[in-house]
């Protein structure tokens, strides 16, 4: 049911943005992941949803015989998911580094330029 997914996208975006508004670094990161999930679902919705049928041509055929899911958004999302892992990993290490250097999790307290990180 697409309407459910539409609502889900909204909820994921809200939650992601809300978490990114927090001052805690970990919440920022979680918000970022959730926002990414929301974006993936959004892209997924852009191709018309087809229940059950993967974009895989039947073994005996050389062409699609019946309805198939749109492959382009899937290819996009697949790369997005993998990239997001790399990004999350880098961000997490960066935050860890910031935390161990400044001893603060409060993003607001990082607002000093002359810190030797």
């Amino acid at each position: 049911m697409e309407l459910l997914l539409v609502a889900l996208v909204g909820v994921l975006y809200s939650a992601g943005i809300y978490l990114m508004f927090r001052r805690s670094m970990v919440k920022l990161l979680l918000g970022f992941i959730i926002l990414g999930n929301g974006a993936n679902i959004l892209i997924f919705l852009m191709g018309e949803l087809t229940k059950g049928k993967a974009p895989i041509i039947d073994a005996e055929e050389t062409h699609f015989v019946d309805a198939y899911a749109d492959p382009v958004p899937q290819a996009l999302i697949l790369t997005a998911i993998v990239i997001s892992f790399g990004l999350t990993a880098f961000a997490i290490v960066l935050l860890n580094k910031v935390y161990s250097t400044t001893g603060s999790d409060d993003l607001d307290s990082l607002n000093i330029q002359d810190l030797d990180i």
Binding site: L5, L8, F44, T50, K51, G52, A54, P55, A69
Partner: peptide, 10 residues
């Protein structure tokens, strides 16, 4: 959700 909507790779 990906399973439901025909995206096993995803």
């Amino acid at each position: 959700i990906f399973v439901f909507y025909g995206a096993p790779d995803l």
